[in-house]
Structure formats: structure tokens, C-alpha cells
């Protein structure tokens, strides 16, 4: 378990597509407005935590940024690179890890092969080492525990050496030990230069990981602040209530 913190995450990640500028981003599905008028910047090398209650629009925001959904209003501009570069420089880890029906190692090699990476064996081994799962390399991924599967998903993302890593509530269904392993890995990736954009509804997790907090409420970005300012002096009543542990709806 100590491996995440102690293992070097490898070569530093060069910045080429960041910063990301988002202007008045909105997403509407039928009559439901999931996200409305969100403007923000994602700067290189930061850990950005998107905080908010369930249904606040966190997952939708992440999917818009990652390009899995197309915005219905507003725009999103990456600093550099063509479309292929932009796609190639991102990775995402989902709340429920999707494991392919093959071994842990092959799950990672599959992702590398899709982008025609070189040295696939070596990169997959390094990624498994980072998340502390080298000993499970040959186990069928679907037979791993939930926490192990999420670490495989992280290793799969990491093997691609993304400039930006999106994580959608990656620890929502995990126990504290597994959560800690995930958080250590996220920090190791950040230390290697990857920019982190992660959603959570867990206040403690936000405190542990955030450099900056983006607080969403009912599809609107109500607060965007450095982490310590956010937790000490929230400027919006919704954020203040959330930090006090009150239920928001």
C-alpha cells in the first residue's frame, strides 16, 4: 500500500494543452438544466476539486470538460494542440471502473495499444507498480475487489501519461483503506506533473486533496476559490452550509 507514495511516478508530464478556459458552459437535456453558465480556468499543475451535493452537476461538468458530452451552450478552449493532441493528453477515471474481461495487465496494455504507444510492456509494468498492484498483474480484472479495480483504472489512466486526469467520484463506493490508496496515487500523479480535476461530495476528501475548490450547486458554479479560503471563509451561503455539514437540496 505504501507503494503509491514511495514509488516515483516516472518522467514529468510536459504541459501543452493547458490552461483550459471555460466560458458560460451549459448543458441542458430536454427541460432539465444540468449545468448553467459555468466559467472557469484549469491551470497546469493544480489539483482542482469539484465539490457539491449529488445532482449538483459535478459529473456533467467533468464529462463536458473531458469531451464525453457536447455543451448545449458556452464554450471550452484548450490552450494548445489540435483535436487529437487534446484528446490524447487527457484521461478519466469513472465512479464505477469499467474492467475489460481480461487480465489486469492486459487492461492497461489495451489502453496503450489504442494510442499506438511504444514500450507497452514496460509502461504497463510501471503503472501497476505505481498503484501497488504488480502482484495482481495476471489476475482477471473482473475478479479483483472494487478498490483494486479502481486502482487498475488509475493505473490504466496513468499509463497514458495524461496532462490532465479527470476523476469522477473515484472513491464513492470504497472503504477508507481503499480510498486512501486512491488518494495517494492521485497525489503521486500530481507530483509527476499531471493536473487533477476530481469531483467528490466528501468534504474531508476535498480538504485532503484540493489546491482549489469549485463548488457547484443546482448546476451553477457558486464558488471558485483556493482551498484554504474556501474552507475558512466561504463567500456563498450554500458553500457555508455545505461546509457546516448541513443538507443541501
Amino acid at each position: 500500500m505504501a507503494s503509491a507514495a514511495s514509488t516515483s511516478a516516472g518522467a514529468d508530464i510536459a504541459s501543452c494543452i493547458l490552461p483550459l478556459r471555460v466560458e458560460a458552459l451549459g448543458f441542458r437535456a430536454g427541460d432539465v438544466i444540468a449545468l448553467d453558465g459555468v466559467s472557469l480556468n484549469v491551470m497546469p499543475g493544480t489539483r482542482n476539486i469539484v465539490l457539491g451535493a449529488n445532482g449538483a452537476g459535478k459529473s456533467v461538468l467533468l464529462r463536458l470538460l473531458h469531451g464525453l458530452l457536447a455543451p448545449t451552450s458556452g464554450r471550452l478552449q484548450w490552450h494548445g494542440g489540435d483535436d487529437a493532441d487534446v484528446r490524447r493528453a487527457q484521461a478519466m477515471v469513472f465512479q464505477r471502473p469499467v474492467m475489460m474481461r481480461r487480465s489486469v495487465r492486459e487492461n492497461i496494455e489495451f489502453a496503450l495499444r489504442l494510442v499506438h504507444a511504444a514500450d507497452i510492456d514496460k509502461k504497463a509494468a510501471e503503472a501497476l507498480e505505481l498503484v501497488g498492484l504488480a502482484r495482481l498483474a495476471d489476475r482477471p480484472a473482473r475478479l479483483c475487489s472494487g478498490g483494486e479495480q479502481q486502482r487498475v483504472a488509475l493505473a490504466r489512466a496513468w499509463a497514458l501519461k495524461p496532462e490532465v486526469l479527470f476523476l469522477d467520484e473515484p472513491t464513492a463506493s470504497l472503504d477508507p483503506a481503499a480510498t486512501r490508496a486512491i488518494e495517494e496515487t492521485v497525489n503521486a500523479m500530481h507530483a509527476a506533473g499531471t493536473t487533477i480535476v476530481m469531483t467528490t461530495h466528501d468534504l474531508g476528501q476535498a480538504k485532503r486533496l484540493a489546491d482549489r475548490v469549485l463548488f457547484l450547486h443546482h448546476g451553477r458554479l457558486v464558488e471558485d476559490a483556493p482551498a484554504k479560503d474556501f474552507f475558512l471563509q466561504p463567500t456563498s451561503p450554500e458553500a457555508a452550509a455545505f461546509i457546516r455539514g448541513e443538507l443541501l437540496w
Partner: peptide, 9 residues
């Protein structure tokens, strides 16, 4: 698998 496969390009 859709989102995962699209995410992996």
C-alpha cells in the same frame, strides 16, 4: 463500456 472506450480514444 461506452464512456470508458470513448475516453480511451
Amino acid at each position: 463500456y461506452r464512456e470508458q472506450l470513448l475516453s480511451l480514444n
